[in-house]
Design a protein around this nucleic acid. Structure first.
Lengths: 204, 204, 204, 204
DNA sequence: AATGAATGAGTTTTCATTCAT
DNA sequence: AATGAATGAAAACTCATTCAT
């Protein structure tokens, strides 16, 4: 019997189910390569370059992701899944009072380092299809926010939308050349201060 | 024969000097068309489409801007010049106390409407060359900030860099689909509150 | 262990000898799927689609037919064999007087329904190799023609070549969109009338 | 003044209007090359080969015909226009009695020589869009047919559809390898005899 | 024998850029 | 200066065929 039989204990990567072991490995390689290439050169980098970076033939890339769009979307989904996992972990274990700030800080750091997906978010045509994968992340952030508010660390009249908006904005900003670690910190300081209840703010 | 010399009273548009009147008119048309096209379809829109929109032949576009990059840069410079003019006007006439907030609000609104330049800023390869045109804008913002701080509307320990950073971030964020006017306002409210001195903040 | 030897009573399908029972079954499935697919989408349909339609893996298809060309030829041979069997049956049992007309009518009907092979005949590069399988068919038609002529239903000065030529032509024509059953009949009526001896023709 | 000004006396080639002289020349070259290439290698020949044969760059071909389909259609239209012109000439000047037979003979000869378009007609996906250009040809044939019938050379109960059908069929048949001039003649002899009124037929 | 993943040459199509008119 | 046709490199995508599992 030559059944594919993927080992059943594998992590639940969406889109990678039911593939033979080697195919799954290659899928992962392609995603990694694509993330790197698009991070470096922007989403107009050629699919061929992704294939080269992955050490695979171009046909293999297109077999896994039949369109360049599909590849970009897959990267997005992957990254969003990563982030969601992280929020959920924080929501379970993190310090209730400042969980929101912690998560935002991490995300901005990551964005600056990985440069990846956040940059892609700005591109037209991709957004819509990823909306589904965005929901769990939003939910996770909502959870963090609620906890921080219950703990009195964030003012009550702030909604998830603002938080996500600020997060997105600062992450994108952080991709620009001039933003060093210190600028990130100072920018976030302002944002965090705006989020705090009047009583809990940092002094001048 | 009409004089090819540009009438000396013309506004000092960079790149438009020493051109015959019709040539200058075409230059302007191209820039307007390009701004519109790239705003709609992103910077990967074809130069040909710009030419069509401008009602000119493709050759004419390339005669004025020998490269697509050059065209993109020119749009950037133009927009930055506009913004700079606006900051300077505000710095001269605006309400000293809240001039910074007013300017930021306007910019975010514009970004959402025009979508243009801010989106372009995110593209790789363009950033560097525009740095020059960015300085006057930064200086104008610095001036506004200083006035707001003198008036007690912004806390003293905030620097221009943070303000520019926040501005860039929120502008880019505002380009996304979900951002309606209300979200813009609420997001900026948080940012403004973070910029205010502890005593001047809005109550919960 | 079941014997891999094919039961000796099997029909003499060319190319299917010496195969295990399941292999022979697969061969048949592939041919059927291929006939259907190529009939629908033309000979440029992908081999992969054939595999899917046959419910087999692409590798299996190529194991049976090492080239796409080979597959196309096999379909042709199969169809020609079918037709030959039919002519031979008619030559044995059919009405001697009109056997030729009956066979032509059937072929045109089939062509319109199956669309398959006749269409393929038009493609370059395939024709030659099938010449062998065409001979028996031609011989069968010659036999029918001779009998019809002996019975006085077809004029004596008509040769097999014309009959085959007319048959081919009308079959190909019948593949086109506009040809409904009625047009087929009317077209063949003209041809048949041209084949009849002067005395045996239909009145105006 | 650099107006294109195509000389107004040019023949009315559809699709070639309003082009600069050089562009029109190239359009014609492309069509000729394409007709030749597709005639030789079938419609799956590469557009690139057409470009090479035309002595032009591939981009030029796609500028004139933005799709391969468009190119194929243009060839079809061109050929149909040629044929239409020919029928119309015959309808004006030709021998009223046998005009239909004369036209059919010419078309079959051409088909065999040019091999071009008739072969393309068999391909799926093209037919529909050409329907418009086919009408005038059909009308011309109808005219010829009516005249031949009035002159007593063709039986009254034959319709245009059959004639077109027979024409198409025999033309396509004539593309095959085996069909020499003599076979063409003998095949058409049968068809013509079937079209004649009972009294006007050739003797055995 | 069957499977289906990988290969990579080949095809269509786009677009920045050049250049003759 | 303006025009717009031509160029051709580059990108996206397809598909017959091979080969490890």
């Amino acid at each position: 019997m030559t059944s594919p039989k993927p080992s059943p204990g594998e992590p639940d990567v969406p889109g990678a189910k039911g593939l033979r072991a080697d195919a799954r490995r290659n899928r992962a390689r392609i995603l990694a390569a694509a993330a790197a290439v698009f991070a470096e050169k922007g989403p107009s980098a050629s699919t061929d370059e992704v294939a080269v970076r992955a050490g695979l033939a171009i046909g293999t890339v297109f077999k896994h992701f039949p369109t360049k769009q599909a590849l970009l979307q897959a990267i997005m989904k992957d990254l969003l899944a990563d982030l969601t996992r992280e929020v959920e972990a924080l929501a379970a274990d993190g310090d209730p009072a400042t969980s929101t700030f912690g998560f935002m800080t991490r995300m901005v750091e990551q964005a600056a380092e990985k440069k990846t997906v956040v940059g892609l978010l700005a591109e037209a045509g991709i957004d819509l299809q990823v909306a589904d994968s965005l929901h769990p992340l939003r939910d996770g952030i909502a959870e963090l926010l609620a906890r921080s508010q219950r703990a009195g660390a964030v003012r009550e009249d702030v909604g998830v939308d603002e938080v996500v908006a600020l997060l997105t904005g600062v992450c994108q900003g952080a991709l620009h050349a001039g933003w060093d670690r210190d600028l990130q910190r100072r920018t976030l300081a302002v944002v965090f201060d705006g989020l705090r209840p009047p009583g809990a703010r940092r002094p001048t």
